[in-house]
Every structure is written in structure tokens, then in C-alpha cells.
Nucleic acid binder design. Structure first.
Lengths: 212, 212
DNA sequence: ATTGTACAATATGTATACAATTCACTCTTG
DNA sequence: CAAGAGTGAATTGTATACATATTGTACAAT
């Protein structure tokens, strides 16, 4: 998340940075490429996956369906140890909100939803969930970065929704879990749309004061 | 598909077999692992992904939803070159039925459905589709292997459905494409279920002739 | 002045050698 | 006789060196 989309990767520089040889680094790059973090080019190395308009459109199309399906399966398959794990992540998530490091908060949120995916235990939906979560975290980093009063309220609302979701999973209530998941998605979607299309800057037009 | 599920892979033997060094072979293994063909174990190499009962259950749960979603998007996004590609694959598919090599037929079928996925152009649904197709091909290999009259009829029916699907895509008819896709799925599902739970062997029970 | 070609530099792909971990077999001990 | 520890063989993980491909720059020709 430190590198912007499309940024090319230098194998020797990275291997030096992490203190490993090029061979294991290349294996990591292959793996990240397979997971969708990186785009691999033949004989031309790897670059950070891009996030263009078409990709964004597909993201908003696919996300609710996959998230809802995963939530339903997770509620059906939940065992006590899964719930405990979710609770642990949620504690860390709430703590990081207090501290205020956006990167950490985004990471805990990612892990929370990934853990739900693992509860669902579907090897066929998991790949798409992972791909969605990667870009959700990348797009939504602003969700946790900005610190206006409205944003802070929305982060706390998201945390409350996490708690409610945990309860639904604990009660094996699939339809409630789906319902909460879709509410959670709507909150996040609103925030992302607000980021993509923010309030316009104040302006003056031919001597008339702007309506801001 | 030559190796049965769970079979462990020997790196040196494979690198010798394909005439390449271990380094590029390992990268291929990493990639196949990420795509779900192989299960990677830390310090213990890779093995062919297993196909247990739980996995099979998830397969039947997830497949119709993903296939239908992909079909809808494919019909919406279809461009002429996509349709041409589908037609080409379909010709090869029909030819291989005539020749009768099951492995080839299964391969062409795989490519046909993968091409539909590429038409859909959704980076978020594609990973799950690929995972589904891998196991669909593995499970369904019997569909194209066995050559009873009933099976031969069903293969031809599947080919006819392919043609109908191409027409639906060409006409950008999303709901028709979804309808045909679900019919196609049902045909395949029936065949797979018939393989998992075939007619019982003839038997004799305490002197009474069996009803076979 | 612009375009094309050639050469050099840089980065990726591959092979081989070495280190570390695992597994199996044997030997010892209770 | 069984159980456990130790040793050795085999296999996986890592590093380095070399081959190959791409890209940028410089020079020449149109």
C-alpha cells in the first residue's frame, strides 16, 4: 500500500531491502501476482495492480453478492473457535481506531473480513473474496485515513456493525448475518463514493459568489 | 489430470521430465498452487489438490451462482472477437467428440467456459470461476471419458447447449444466457451425480434374486 | 530535424551449487 | 518387545552466477 497502482517493481532493490535473495523474492512476487496484488509482465517484471474505472465498476458489481454469500455460509459453518478469533481481531480493530493509525486499522479490518471468509470455508468463493478484499482495502484506505468528525463517526459505526455481525454468527443466524453484511457494505460504499466524488471546491463564476 | 488427488510431487523428477531446471519448475508449482491445482506444504513440497466430500459440497453450492453471474456479465460485455473465439473453441470441441479422446474434449470444454469468463471481464469473479472450472474438469472428466449411449447423447446435448449459448451471447441476451447456462449446469450436475452415485451392482440376498 | 538502426546497459529468466529441514531407519535402553 | 533418540539419506529452500531479452541512447542517413 506504500506504492501507488502501476508502480513497477525492481527485483534487486527489493531483495536488498528485505535482506533476501532474488529467488525467494521472485516466488513471493509470483504469489502476490496470483492473488491480484501485482500484475506480472513477461520479461518485463511486475508492477502494482492498477485500479482503473472499469475495475472499480466490476468491484461495485461483484462485492455485495460475494460478501453476502460468504456471510451466509460463515453463519452456517461457524464454530466456537472461529467466533473467538473474530472477537480477538475486533478488539485489535477497536484499539487501533483509538490510536489512530489508519494503516493498522485497515489491516485489522481486512483480517476481520478474511476471517469471515475462512469461516465460510468455501474454496470456490474464497479466491474472489480475497481479490475483493485486496482492492476494498486499497480503495478504502482513505476511509480509515481521513479524520473528519463525520468519518470518525462512520468508523465507529462500522465497528458497531462488526460487533453485531459477530453476534449473528455466534447465533448461527444466517439471514441476520447477510442483512448486517449488506448494511456494512452500504456504509463502506457510501464512504468510497464520497471519496471518488467529493464536494467540489469553492468557486466564483463571473462575479457571482458561489453557493458554498 | 494424470495424477490422482493427494499425490505428492517430486521436484527433481519433474524438472528432469520437462527438461527444465528446478527454479522455473518451482515458479510453475507456486502458480498452480495459487490457482488451486496443487496444495503447497511448507518444507514438504506440493501435492495434487484433494477432492473430499466437503469440497464437493461447496462445489455444488457455489457453481450455479458464479456460472450464472459470469454468463450475465459475458452477455453484457460481449464483443464480436469474443464470439468468434467461442465459435472456434466450439468447433474444436465438436471435432474432439467425434475423434473420441476424452482428455481433449474435457480440455476444449474447459477453454470454452474460461473464454466466457474472459468475456465477462470481471477480475473479481474470474478467480472463483477458474477454481470452479479446475475441479469441474477434474470431476467431470468421466463425463467425457465414458462412452455409453446415454453418455454420448448427453455430450452431444452439451454441445448443442454450447451453440445456443453462443447465440445468446451474440444477441447480447443476458437473461437467455443465464437460463441456458443453468440448463447446461443441470445436465452436467446430473452426470456428476450419476457418477458419484451409480446404479448398484447386481446382488443376491439370502436366496432371493435381485431386482436387477 | 526526424527517423531508423546499432550498441550498450540494465533487468529478467534459468541453472547449478549449497544450506537447512524433514523423514525413515537403526541402535540403544527401559 | 516396545519406545525413543540419534544418525544419515533425501528433499526442499536459498544464494549466486550466467544467459537472454528489453530498453534507452547515440549516431548516421534520409
Amino acid at each position: 500500500m506504500e506504492l501507488s497502482p502501476g508502480h513497477p517493481l525492481d527485483e534487486v532493490a527489493l531483495s536488498a531491502e528485505f535482506g533476501i535473495s532474488r529467488t525467494p523474492l521472485r516466488e513471493i512476487i509470483q504469489k502476490l501476482g496470483g492473488e491480484g496484488y501485482l500484475t506480472l509482465l513477461e520479461n518485463r517484471g511486475a508492477k502494482v495492480a492498477s485500479l482503473d474505472l472499469s475495475t472499480l465498476r466490476h468491484f461495485f458489481q461483484a462485492a455485495p453478492m460475494i460478501y453476502a454469500s460468504i456471510a451466509r455460509l460463515a453463519a452456517e459453518h461457524a464454530i466456537d473457535s472461529d467466533i473467538e478469533r473474530l472477537k480477538e481481531i475486533q478488539v485489535a480493530f477497536r484499539q487501533s481506531i483509538g490510536v489512530g493509525r489508519s494503516c493498522e486499522t485497515a489491516g485489522h479490518n481486512h483480517r476481520f473480513h478474511e476471517a469471515i471468509g475462512e469461516m465460510a470455508a468455501s474454496p470456490y468463493l474464497m479466491p474472489s473474496l480475497k481479490r475483493l478484499l485486496i482492492d476494498h482495502t486499497r480503495i478504502g484506505q482513505m476511509f480509515y485515513r481521513s479524520r473528519s468528525d463525520g468519518d470518525r463517526n462512520r468508523i465507529n459505526e462500522a465497528a458497531d456493525q462488526h460487533d453485531a455481525m459477530i453476534e449473528a454468527f455466534a447465533g448461527r443466524d444466517a439471514s441476520r448475518a447477510v442483512e448486517l453484511t449488506l448494511q456494512h457494505w452500504e456504509l463502506s460504499r457510501g464512504q468510497m463514493e464520497r471519496f471518488v466524488s467529493p464536494d467540489p471546491l469553492p468557486f466564483e463564476l463571473e462575479g457571482h459568489a458561489s453557493a458554498v
